[in-house]
Structure formats: C-alpha cells, structure tokens
Design a protein around this nucleic acid. Structure first.
Lengths: 203, 203, 203, 203
DNA sequence: TATGAATGAGTTTTCATTCAT
DNA sequence: TATGAATGAAAACTCATTCAT
C-alpha cells in the first residue's frame, strides 16, 4: 500500500528543510564555491542524487537561502509598516535587524559573501518589493522629520552603519559587542534619551 | 651579451608585478574561486608554467594581494604615526582610508569577499603589527580625549562605519556618494566644523 | 465489490498500451537515450515504480516497440501472402509499406534511429520469420518473372529504394512528397501503366 | 628550452586528429549517446582532461565529425562543378558518392544516426553552401535534359535511392553489394549503355 | 497493486599543478 | 628561464532502477 499524498508531502517538506539547512551550514562554513554538493548531502544525511530530486542545482540552493533571508526581512518590514513611523519604530527597526542577524548568522554570512554573485543579484532585486520601497520612503520621511538637512545622505549613512554592523558581527560573532553597538546606533540616529533599559527588549 | 644580474632581477620584478596585477584583475572580476590560473597567465602575458616559477600556488597569489592591501594600510598608519594624534590626524585617517579604497577598489573587493577564507585569516592576523596596535591605542586615546564615555565602544562603532562604507562603495562604486559619506563620517566622529573645502584634498 | 479476473486483465492490458504509447512518444520525440523513464511514466499517467511491474527495463520498452513495428509488417506480409504474387500484389506491397509508415511515423523514426542498437539487432533477426523469408522468395520470383537478369540485385535495389523513402519521409514528414514518390517507385519497378488513380486507394 | 611554436603546432595537430579519429570510432561503434568521453580518451591514448584542452565538449566532437563529412562531399561537388554537367558527370557523382561512403563508413554511420540531432541540424544547414545549391540546380537541369516530365520528382527519387544505398551499406558493409548497386543506380538514372567496364574506375 | 522517495554508479566537465622539452 | 601539453582528482549533475510503505 503506498503512502498517502499527505505522508509524501511531509517527507518532502522535512527533507527539503534538512537539505536547505545542511546547505546553509556547509555554504557558510566553507564558502559557497568551495562547498561541495557531496558534503551538503552527507551533512543532510541524504544521497547526492536525492539533492537533485529536491533542487535543480547548487545555485538554486544558494538562491533559495538568500531569498529566505530577504523574505524574513520583508516580514519585519511588513510588521513595522502597520504602525505610524515614529522614533520607536526606528528603534524597533534596528533591534529587529540585529535580531534577525543574531538568529541567523550563517545566512547573513552567506548573504554578505555572495551578494555580488551573478545569480544572487537578481534575487535581491526581485525581493525589493513595493512594500520595502514604501518603507524606505517612510524612513526617509522620518529622517526628514528629525530635521536632517540632507535626509537622503543620512539614510545612506544609516545604511552603511547597518552594513558594517552586520559584516563585523558575522566576522566574529562571539566577540562582537552586539548590544553595545545596537544601542550606539540607536543613540546616533535618534539623538534623544529615548533609549532606556532596552537590552532586555531586544532579546 | 648576457644580461647582468641586475637586469635579470628587474625582469623578474616586473614579471612578478604583471602577474600579481593580472591576478588581481581576474580574481576581482570573476571571483577568486571561479577565476582560472589559465586566464591569469594569459592576462599577464606569461605562460602557465612560468607562473609557478614566480609563485607557489593560486592561494599564494591571493595571500600576497591581500597582504599588499594590508601593507598599504600599514604604510598610511605609519605616516599618521609620525605626528601627534589630533582631530586633523583623524580626518586624514578617514580621508586616506577612502583614498586607498578609491585607488584600489579591486583589491578591496577581493579583500571583502575573501576575508573569511581560511588562508586569508592568518594573513590578516599576521599583518596586525605592533605598530598598528599602537595606532589603535592612539585612536582610542583620541576618542577618550574627545570625551566619549566609552571610547572602546566608540572605536568599534567607528570601525563598523568604515567597514560599511567600504562594503557599499565596493558593491556599486559608480553610484556611491563617496565624498558625502566621507564628510558625513568625519562630521559624526569629530562634531566640529573642522571640515572645510576638503573635496580637493581628498583627491 | 472486487473486480473480476477479466477486469484486472483489461486494466493491465490498457496500462501496458498506455505505457508503450507514452514510451513511443517520448522516445521518438527526444531520442531513446535522452528520454527518461520518469518522463515516460508521467506521460503514461503512471508511477515510475509501476512501470517496472509491467516492463523489465527501459530496453525492453524499446525492444517491444521495435518488435511491434516488425509485427505489423509481418501482418501485411501475411495478408499479401494469401494471394498469388502479381504485379498488383507488388503495388499493394509498396502502398501498404507507405501506409504503415504514415500511420506510425514515430515508430519508424525510432526504428531507423535505433536499428543498429545492440539490443535491437537480435529483435530484427528474430522477427525475420520463415513467412517473411517465403515472401521474400516470392518477391524474388516476381522480379525474375518480370524479366530481370539479376533479380537478387533488383530486389536489393528495391530494398534500398524503400529504405531511402522511409528515411527521408521520417526526416521531414511534412514536406516529403509521399504520393509522388510512391507512384514513382511503383512505376520504376513495374514499368507499365498499371498505376491509375491510386491516390485515393492509398489513403 | 621550450619547444618551438612549430613543434607545438605539430603536437596539437596530431593529437587533434588522434582524438577525432578515436571519437569517430567510438561514436560509430557504440552510438554517440552511449559512447563516453572516458572511452574516447582511452582509445585516443590521452587523459580525459586533455580532451577538453582540444575540444569544448562532446557535442563539438560530433559537430566536427559531421562537418568534415559534409566538407568532403562539398569538395567532390566542387570538383564536379569544374566541368559541364553531362551523363558522365552524373556517373562520377554516383561513383564519388559511393567512394566517400566506402572510404569512411564510420562517419556515414554516425551521420545517418545523428542527422536529426538538434546540434547536427544546424551544421547540415550551414554546410549547404551556395555551391551545393548551384550543383543541385545543375543536377535538376541534367534530369530535365534527360527528358523527365517532372525532373524535381526525379531528383528526389534519386535522392532517396542514394540515401537508402548509404543506409543499407552502413548497416552491413561486408555483405552489401556496393558495386552492383552502384551500377544499378547508374543504369536506372541514365538509361543508356553508357556504363561499361567501370568497376575499376570507381576504386 | 501502486507510489514516488531514495540510491549510486555513471556522466561530462573543470582546473590547479606538473613535466618533457 | 620558458612553454603549453598533459594529468588526475574532484566537481556538478543524471537517471535507470530499487524499495519501504
């Protein structure tokens, strides 16, 4: 008697996740190019051939992993969009950014290493949804409201700060002072004493 | 007439440079892993075999390129060390940082892409010389003198800013507002009107 | 209510046909080697595993398809054997040959492509039944009666003509002038005005 | 001391031929798809890797082999074009056709097996040069001059005859009566006693 | 009987490195 | 010193076939 459709679905779903998870681990550990499908399959406890039953290619694995990171970000943006953009929203933006980072350092490592890879660029572009665009405009409006003469510059400056934050965290997660930097960033970009006892919040 | 030893030495030296330069070009264009020695040798106008007369391996090329970037930085540090560390020194630090970046975007691209590569990490560690260590202490002292409560945090914060700056510049050199960001950074970390007509200086 | 044995038998028989038909389609479309069992099973609306309940291997599918083509031919031979071999028989031989071809171009394509395949050769030999042998002798006698000095040569010559006919038809069925060539062949090998308004017959 | 450019050229040329020859042998023996590069390289006495120093891909080998067959044919056509097209030209056309066939049965086997392969079709089209087109027109004119009512049909009929000839020869070179068939064809299409003691010529 | 997940041997291809000259 | 032909190990990927359910 064959398995039911649902059973098959479950098996597929579990295996998919197992493979993606193994791929993430191996890719981030050894770098995408140096990592071999063979190693990923071993890590996933699966035959090499089966990988291709679930995914088209090594590249597709990369694209899905990067895509899922961007989707997580989009979800955060979505949440933040539900309220009026205040200083508090900004704070939560930073906090949620670092939270995502801490929750999935491997994915970020992969992302930062591969973000200029030809097959990743289109993913990034595709995932820059209208919603994210709108959020960016809100952020710009926020900086404008904060009284910056050149809010676009301010926004880019914020962007490089966050990028550097992520890059350095990823390079040495154990020694990087996440909370201190998070607090520092918030102080820098809000310039008020907004920021009290927030270390617990950010967990 | 046989060439003198000196002439030989010159030829060797030129060849070395040609190969390294070709390697840098190809590595940064195609990514280290995807780049082939064959292409590098063609680009350098040298046979594949001869490459191995000059360098041990592909990896060595990478290590030398990264090393030379760090050496350039060290040289800058060395220059800056010759004076007392003032706000002006800090400004020049930032400016020289961006200058190096703009002068050698390929090397930086390679550096940022490969900085977590197993054979690069030891290079970075080795190049963190006592002199750089001393400079770091001076910088820390500078931030202390500027009145920051936690100068170490401030220094790390400065570091992530510079990292993000470099990362984003490398990602899209043509559209990145180098000067505006440079000015912004200086303003942020000095908070004075120190910064006048410096666009020309920074060229 | 359980199905009767006969119903089971019917289902099995239908499935067999469906699979063979799908195999023919896919094999002729993509070429035997490039065609995948997976695609055949999908096309047949049957699971991959079940295919192996009906057939031993991919090769067996090929062999059965080729075999069935030869069987069809044998059937035609059988029909033609029921009468005395006259010029009219010869004409019908040619016509039925082209009819089979037009009725089953895919099978012929497969046949012509695979006729030198190691597993197909024995099939062809096995299907060269005594009956066909006898028919060949009758054909030879016919050519002899037609007054050819060397009827064996004439027969081989007829054979290459039919082969070329099939090959070129298969290569480009839409543009090949089937009827004109059929008429031409008949004229060539009968040399009489035997051949009147036969286009309708051959449909 | 390195080899001279000429020496390298010689090595390359020899190896190229060796590989092409091995490929032809293995492809025609086992069929293009079933043949493996590994086997071709073994047959050529060369490492697998070296194959790719000389050729881009397995497909390129196929294309070159097919192309060279068509080039040989074109050369024959070129020779025949240098004279006025007479019955004698036609005879030599047939003879040279069979000569090419007998000289290179493996190539023809490959050609007939692969002529519908996606990567071969464009080769065939590309090699159908204006010169060949012109020759075809001459042949048509020849048939017209011979008094055929429908010379186009006659030409196509000639074409299928030659195709069938080649196909059957290739299927069983040892038992196929080449000369008899060649003579037969010439007789069929010339219908004169043109054709005397020509077996020696055709060698 | 029926499913499709799973396997593994086989394929083509790449490329850093070596080596004969 | 200099060349590029040659190697071989490893890579990504395919697919007929098996097997647990």
């Amino acid at each position: 008697m064959p398995r039911t459709a649902k059973q098959f679905e479950e098996i597929r779903s579990e295996r998919r996740e197992a493979i993606l998870s193994a791929a993430l681990h191996v890719f981030s550990e050894e770098g995408y190019h140096h990592a071999s499908i063979s190693k990923v399959s071993k890590e996933a406890g699966v035959s090499k051939g089966l990988m291709y039953n679930y995914f088209q290619s090594k590249e597709e694995l990369l694209e899905l992993l990067i895509g899922s990171l961007l989707d997580e970000e989009t979800k955060v943006v979505h949440e933040l969009m539900e309220e009026k953009f205040t200083a508090d929203t900004f704070i939560r933006l930073v906090q949620m950014g670092t939270n995502i980072l801490r929750k999935n350092p491997k994915k970020w490592k992969l992302y930062l290493n591969m973000s200029s890879h030809p097959s990743v660029i289109p993913i990034i572009q595709k995932k820059f949804t209208p919603e994210r665009q709108l959020f960016a405009e809100n952020l710009l409006a926020f900086f404008t409201a904060q009284g910056y003469q050149d809010p676009a510059i301010q926004m880019q400056y914020f962007s490089i700060t966050m990028t550097g934050f992520k890059f350095q965290y990823i390079m040495d997660p154990d020694n990087f002072p996440v909370f201190e930097m998070e607090t520092k960033i918030i102080q820098q970009f809000i310039k008020e004493d907004y920021v009290s006892n927030r270390n617990n919040k950010s967990l």
